[in-house]
Design a protein around this nucleic acid. Sequence first.
DNA 1: CGCGTTTGACCTGCGC
DNA 2: GCGCAGGTCAAACGCG
Length: 305
Amino acid sequence: MSSSNEKNDPLYNYDPFQGFDSSTFPFFDYNNLLVYSQAAPTPPFQGLDSSYMNFTDCLHDQNSFSRPFFDMSGSSSDVVGPVHDNASNSKQTVDDSVRINIDDTENPSTPNSSVSSPSNGGTAVEDSRKTNKGSEQEKSKKVNKPKKERQQRKPRFAFLTKTEIDVLEDGYRWRKYGQKAVKNSPYPRSYYRCTTQKCGVKKRVERSFQDPSVVITTYEGCHNHHIPITLRGNNITSSAGFPHEFLAHYFFPSTSNHQEENSMQHQSVALHQHQHQHQQQQELQVSDYGLLHNLVSSSTGKQAP
DNA sequence: CGCGTTTGACCTGCGC
DNA sequence: GCGCAGGTCAAACGCG
C-alpha cells in the first residue's frame, strides 16, 4: 500500500533506467538477466513469479519496474516512513525477512563491536573458544547490547544470472563473511560485504536449487565509492553477463558530476571489454530469454516437480 | 604479513 | 515460550 510519503521520496521517483535502452551498453546482454524486487512475494529460489522480470521487459515497463525496485521499506504492503517496529504486521517474504541491523555507512561500529570486547586470550584454541565464548560473550552481549532500533531497509535488488560461475565479478571487492545452508536447497548461500571502508553494501550469492545454472545475486545498499577497478590480473571472466554499468548507474544515481560519471563509465567499459573477450573465449552458454522465461514459468507451479 | 575464506557459535525475528 | 531459519560474528586457517 503506497503512502504519500513514497511519493515524496526522491528514491521512489527515481528511475534507475533513465536513459537506458538496449543499445546503451552493447557489451551487456540484457536478455540474460532477470531482476526481481524485494517486494516480490516469494524469493526466486522458491518459485519465480511475475515479479521477476526479464531485464529487457523492465526497460520497457519502467513503471512496474522502478516501483518495486526501489521499495525501500520491504513488503509493498508496508507503511513507508519512519522506522516502525510493527513489521510483524506485514507479511514478509523469506527474502524480505532479512534484518538490517548493521549500517556501516552511518555507524561504522557494528553492534557487537560496540560491546565491550571479549576478553578471550588471542591464543585461545577452538575448544576453549567454544566454552569461553558461550559464557563471556553471552554476558557481555546481553548486558550491554542496546536495543537496536529497526534499521530502515536499504535498497535491495537481485539478479538472476545464468552462469556456471558461483561468484559473479562485478568490479567491486567483496569479503565473504558468512555462509549458510539454505533450507530446501542443496546450495549454500554466501554473504559478502564490500571491503571498501565505510561502504556497507552487502550481497548474497546463492544458486537456485530449481535451476542450478542460475545464480541469484542480491545486492543490499549503495556503494559510496566507485568501482575499484583492481582487476588483479585475473578472471574477470566471472563477470559474464553482469551489468556493471547498470550497477554503476544504480549505485550512483545522483552522479550528475560528469567528471565522475565519465571516470566511472570508463572503468565499467573497461570491465566489459574484458568481460566480452572472456565471454567469447569461454563460450559460456548463457541461456536466452526463452530459457529463463521457461524457468520463470515452470516455477510458478504450473509444472509438476 | 596482509587479506580473504572457512566454519561453528551466536543473535534475532517469526510462526506455531 | 519454543523451535526454526536467516543473518552475523570472529578465530582459525590458507594463500600469494
